[in-house]
Computed example of a mutant assay.
Amino acid sequence: MSQQDTEQQYEQPTEAPGYIDDVTDAEAREEAHRARGTVRPITVVGNPVLHHACRTVTEFDADLAQLIDDMFASQRAAEGVGLAANQIGVDLRVLVYDCPDDNGVRHTGHIVNPVLDELPPERRVLDDSNEGCLSVPGAYAELPRPDYASVQGQDMHGNPIAVQGTGFFARCLQHETDHLNGYLYIDRLSKRDRKDALRQMEELTPAYETVPND
């Protein structure tokens, strides 16, 4: 997911049992992943790996740990705040994030096999801020999403984890989970807004390496 400016403020959710602490030592943890990782080019809209649901991770091994490191390195190189594995061409259900919430608190972590929780009606307060994507470089569009998100999944060792977020960070969690289900944010736009986003992309040159579509 691309970075964006945000002005709206949201109340932090009450911490529930099972939610991980992804705030403490966020900078050091991101730097450690990135130092071990290798930057890979970003796939863009039209690449087949972006347009179908990714495979469930079943092997929690050194290859998975290296993938997560590479994803952090690639995310930073592209100046993103979230990245799904298929955005570097890997057909596996893995996402990473290094994203602030609307209060400026930095959240850093990874989720394997993420599943977005269904929200009760009282938590479905929509935020219609702009959204961008590293796989649709240079384009932004308003897209309503709930301003709170809760995701269940596993860590790189296979342990169950849960992550929650508000505001911009909630948008990031929803955006990256969408990727792993085969959807880009432009797939949720009207035909006119999708066409405009693709036009924006065509008019700009990405500031990071991308995988050309054949």
Results as ranks from 00 to 15, higher is better:
Y183F: 14
D147T: 13
E142I: 02
F169R: 01
D178H: 11
Y148D: 11
A141Y: 02
F168V: 07
P146I: 11
Y183P: 00
G153H: 00
R171W: 00
A170K: 03
V151T: 06
H179W: 07
P146K: 08
V151Q: 09
N159Q: 15
I186F: 02
Q174Y: 05
L173I: 07
R171Y: 02
G165L: 10
D187R: 07
E142S: 14
P160N: 13
R171D: 03
M156V: 14
Q164T: 14
D178W: 10
F169L: 08
L184H: 02
N181M: 11
A162C: 10
Q154E: 15
D187H: 15
N181E: 15
G153S: 05
C172N: 04
I186K: 01
D155L: 03
M156R: 13
E142D: 12
L173R: 04
T166F: 02
I186G: 00
A149I: 06
M156F: 03
G153I: 01
A149Y: 03
I186S: 01
V163Y: 07
Y140K: 12
A162D: 01
E176Y: 12
P144W: 14
L180V: 14
G167Q: 03
T166G: 08
E176I: 04
A149M: 10
L184P: 01
Q164S: 15
V163S: 05
I161S: 05
L184K: 04
L180M: 15
G158T: 05
Y183G: 00
Y185G: 02
S150C: 15
C172D: 05
Q152Y: 14
D178L: 05
A141I: 05
D187K: 11
V163H: 09
D178C: 11
G165H: 12
V163A: 13
Q152A: 15
D147Q: 14
D178K: 10
E176K: 03
Q154W: 06
P160Q: 11
C172I: 03
P146W: 06
G182R: 05
Y148H: 13
Y148C: 07
N181C: 12
T177F: 06
E142C: 12
L143G: 02
V151A: 04
A149N: 07
P146V: 06
H179G: 09
M156H: 10
R145I: 05
S150E: 14
Q164D: 15
L143C: 06
L180S: 08
Q164A: 15
D187G: 12
G153F: 00
P144M: 12
G158W: 10
L143E: 06
P160C: 08
A162E: 14
A139L: 01
C172S: 11
Q154T: 07
H157Y: 09
H157R: 12
